[in-house]
Design a protein around this nucleic acid. Structure first.
Length: 503
RNA sequence: GGCCCCAUCGACUAGUGGUUAGGUCAUCACCCUUUCAAGGUGGUAGCACGGGUUCGAAUCCCGUUGGGGUCACCA
């Protein structure tokens, strides 16, 4: 064990989307492995055939890679410890199960579902803990069923499961990297089913076998697995294997402190991708939910490389953390603020292209789709958007004519003289040789000051007419970017369109 | 309910016996300002409770309360 190359795993079941909690588990496994110059592996736990979802495995891997979490070994890429899909390892589990049977650490159980349920209800009614009653424990293991009966049942092809025999009244102790020493009494543990009647192993059995065979040195998983730890440890003991080190991560919580779930917001990483969050922000955010650098650090923004460099399991907290979307939003803004313009352009382009398929623009297409133009939009909007797609969706007026005008703002900003002033100023704008921000500002002030008026008297109406809304970047710069032709057109048609409001 | 885990501002957290309990998000006020942002300054706000241990506890121990997880032929 000492000096061994670190190997960690993320072992999701392919039942659908990637949960943000799963993303964090995968992240921590990845960070730890990379920090230790080891390997991170993805294994698919598809031992429940009924819950298997088509394409889920592909999607899981794809989403993880989107986040920058690249596995060294996975079902698609392969590796020296494959197969990495449990349904392809059935013969392996059968073989180890046989060993347990031979060693009398496991036994056949022919109880039916109804029988088990009945037993369970009875125990609950009597105030006992629901627990398998060991009806099928064979004589030679201390039970009542003679070997001959078992043999006969087997021969007749009756369905059965195989259960592990949990020793009575032994203390099971282990050291969790995050939580410290934890102790369980074996009498509280049920005789866990190892092999289901369909021939598939249960999670507990398959994961122990695989974790050993795949030579993982550290198991990092959610706290919901903490209480099944003793079963796993017993299995390691039965086989005479050295268990890996374990770390149980605190849960991610809803705002009401219950386990993070659907119904109270989005839990799928895919939901956040769809909304437009970037991998940088999501990874950064999720990493900080339960881990911090400590030592008085006040840093909030971390890139993947930096996380790898600074991550440590010892600094993972024990208490659950609420998934607070506001902080995510803030982080996203931080990233947008510092993201290279070229990168932003690359993500905006297809979004704009899609918009242009839906709506027609009166502006020259070559112009508004050019990188030079997008760069100017980004310059003006960078500190005003919360998500990348908002360079298009929150800034539509840079590409499309206003569809409506903020009526509230019009009522507030229009005086009886506004239209007259506007008409006069449009003529001035039209005569401008150089349609630059400085020039527009100069002209506007020169126009307004002799009249004893403030610039604001025209600034607001100009903004509303040319953008439709009352907020946005510096007016002069916005007009410059829009261009003379567009600005003149919008003011002229705008005045007509809002006439009903200001007559 | 049994077992297990957890507990510092509304949220994420720093803190490992002696601090005016620090930072970030959110929130409030002010400044900047043509708007909206961004930025700046300042403020409100926290050690769940009760016992110990100690000269001294957010920090260590016990209990209480509260929250969470888990008790399947699901993972």
């Amino acid at each position: 064990m000492v000096g061994q190359r670190v190997r960690t795993r993320f072992a999701p079941s392919p039942t659908g989307y990637l949960h943000v909690g799963g993303l964090r588990t995968a992240l921590y496994n990845y960070l730890f492995a990379k920090k230790m110059k080891g390997d991170f592996i993805i294994r698919i736990e598809d031992t429940d055939q009924s819950r298997k979802v088509e394409d889920a495995q592909k999607n899981l891997i794809k989403t993880l890679e989107w986040a920058g979490i690249i596995a060294d070994e996975n079902p698609e890429r392969g590796g020296n410890f494959g197969p990495y899909v449990q349904s392809e390892r059935l013969d392996i589990y059968a073989q180890y199960c046989k060993q347990l049977l031979n060693d009398q650490h496991a036994y056949y159980c022919f109880a039916t579902h109804d029988e088990l349920e009945e037993n369970r209800q009875l125990q609950i009614k009597q105030g006992f803990q629901p627990k398998y009653n060991r009806k099928w424990l064979p004589e030679e293991m201390g039970g009542t069923i003679p070997a001959s009966i078992i043999k006969q049942k087997l021969k007749s092809g009756e369905p059965y499961v195989i259960r592990m025999k949990v020793p009575d009244y032994v203390s099971i102790w282990f050291e969790d990297i995050i939580r410290g020493p934890i102790e369980f009494d074996s009498s509280t543990i049920d005789d866990q089913v190892l092999m289901k009647s369909d021939g598939f192993p249960t999670y507990h059995f398959a994961s122990v076998i695989d974790d050993h065979l795949m030579e993982f040195t550290h198991i990092i998983r959610g706290e919901e697995w903490l209480s099944s730890m003793p079963k796993h440890l017993l299995l390691y003991e039965f086989f005479g294997w050295e268990p890996p080190k374990v770390a149980h991560l605190p849960l991610l919580l809803n705002p009401d402190r219950s386990k993070l779930s659907k119904r109270q917001g989005d839990v799928a990483v895919e939901d956040y991708i769809r909304k437009g969050y970037s991998a940088d922000a999501i990874v950064n955010f999720v990493a900080m939910l339960g881990w911090n650098e400590g030592e008085g650090s006040e840093q909030e923004v971390y890139g993947m490389e930096e996380l790898i460099e600074k991550f440590s399991l010892e600094r993972v907290g024990k208490a659950g953390a609420v998934f607070n979307i506001e902080k995510l939003n803030w982080l996203e803004k931080q990233y947008i603020k510092h993201r290279p313009t070229e990168k932003l352009i690359a993500t905006i382009k297809p979004i704009l292209a899609a918009e242009l398929e839906q709506k027609t623009s009166l502006m020259p297409l070559e112009m508004i789709t050019s990188e030079a133009y997008l760069e100017k939009v980004i310059e003006l909007m960078r500190e005003r958007v919360g998500l990348e797609h908002e360079f298009v969706t929150f800034s539509t007026y840079f590409y499309f004519e206003p569809e409506s005008y903020d009526e509230e703002a019009i009522k507030k900003r229009w005086t009886p003289d506004t239209n007259t002033l506007l008409h006069e100023f449009v003529t001035i704008l039209e005569s401008l040789e150089e349609f630059s921000a400085d020039n527009i500002e100069m002209q506007l002030k020169a126009f307004v000051e002799p009249k004893g008026l403030k610039a604001a008297i025209l600034i607001h109406p100009l903004r509303i007419l040319s953008s439709g809304v009352s907020f946005g970047p510096s007016l002069y710069h916005m007009l410059e970017v829009l261009g003379k032709e567009t600005v003149l057109r919008r003011i002229r048609t705008g005045i007509k369109k809002i006439a009903y409001l200001v007559s």
